[in-house]
Design a protein around this nucleic acid. Structure first.
Lengths: 221, 221
DNA sequence: ACTATAGGTGTACGATGTACACTTGTCAAG
DNA sequence: CTTGACAAGTGTACATCGTACACCTATAGT
């Protein structure tokens, strides 16, 4: 046989396969632990093989971020602007929850096609709903700041990776010990768990507040 | 002389000095370029010398973040809650602008004393202004999501480091070339620069929107 | 005067991104 | 059928990073 076992055993690499594996690896390992060498291993290949399909790690990250953008639902054209914004906001949060490594990079990297399509569609939805240019910019800015900021916090607070549970518990103990002087933090720590806190509900609450405010301003104009 | 020149020349290290130099270095070099070795060099010392004053890089980062927290003004007690929140929000944004490396880490690290004091004071301000526990939690959540999210975006968009200007310009050209299909992005690119966009104004706008909404809800309750 | 200790040094190891030179498997043109 | 170009994968090597560990040295307390 002319083809050796390895090649018979595994499919050949491709940009798409590398990208997909990269996202999967980042999803489960986190951004810290995401390395070219680890990715290569996951693909059963030597590290340098990746560079035949990707320029370098930076560009790979750019593309990974654009994959996340591609998973975000565009504001549906058949809904009123408020519902459309709600849908795309929730979809964004969901995507960032699935790919929390991406949170800090969504706006900082060379924008890919999915990114451009998304921004264009959101802005378009607002403009066509009657928002003036200035108001649309404001509206876009608040919403995205809120969405990304919420994702950031949510990600940080659900900090409890399974293996760091012990350490986390100990830190909690230290912190709670030092909490005597902070009555309002004590209140949070004691009341919040028993209040059935749900971060999806929390997200929707703040989103509604913002959308309500925008709606008022839009009607005034 | 018993003390050799080196020691006579430079002050001895200390936790505080290391911390201060670390923040300064991160401020001007960015988080990517911030390394223990670089920090040691800045202090005129061998890398391992730092470890006599700091446990490791992670803990150093924890402390650096708490320094940033310490620069944030607490909500002034002599103002109505809305003004107090406005003050501390703007102060937070200012601190994050000065130390943009900290943006992604403000909530994800082991909380230091300044962090605890800040959170306690903000929550206390709301509660004492008559916010119910639930409403105070909501109010806190929206505000901080907005503040950190805005800082994140602002930091990303002002991406133009001096030496990357050429590259940035080229990328801009590429992007604009590909912008034909995105009319609303074209509108932004053309109208925004000539509209005298000011990010401080933008920040205040969104903040007002949120605080107005919160005020309404508080009065209803 | 002696000795414990705190602060600074030097060397070394494993991990990372990736440059560069190489093999090899495939396919088109002669 | 040969040839030779080319795309894909390999192997070695280097700079840089965080930091473990053993060592030196100057000062302070007895």
């Amino acid at each position: 046989m002319t083809t050796n076992q390895k090649i018979a055993t595994r499919k050949p690499l491709s940009s798409a396969r590398v990208l997909q594996a990269a996202v999967a690896l980042a999803d489960e390992a986190g951004l810290e632990a995401f390395s070219m060498r680890g990715l290569a291993q996951e693909l059963g290949v030597v590290p340098m093989a990746l560079y035949k399909h990707v320029a370098n790690k930076e560009q790979l990250l750019d593309r990974m971020v654009d994959i996340v953008f591609s998973e975000i639902e565009l504001p549906p054209g058949d809904l009123d602007w408020r519902s459309a914004m709600q849908r795309r906001a929730i979809s964004t949060r969901d995507a960032l929850k699935r790919h929390s490594w991406a949170i800090g990079m969504m706006e900082s990297r060379h924008p890919g096609p999915a990114n451009l399509r998304n921004h264009n569609a959101v802005m378009g939805c607002l403009r066509e709903a009657g928002f003036s240019f200035e108001l649309a910019i404001h509206a876009y800015s608040v919403q995205d700041a809120y969405i990304y900021g919420f994702a950031l916090q949510e990600n940080d607070l659900g900090f409890e990776t399974p293996d760091s549970a012990g350490e986390a518990a100990q830190r909690r103990a230290e912190t709670i010990g030092a909490l005597e002087n902070y009555p309002y933090l004590v209140e949070i720590v004691t009341k919040l768990p028993e209040s059935g806190y749900d971060s999806a509900v929390e997200f929707a609450w703040g989103l509604d507040l913002i959308l309500d405010g925008l709606d008022r301003l839009r009607r005034e104009a």
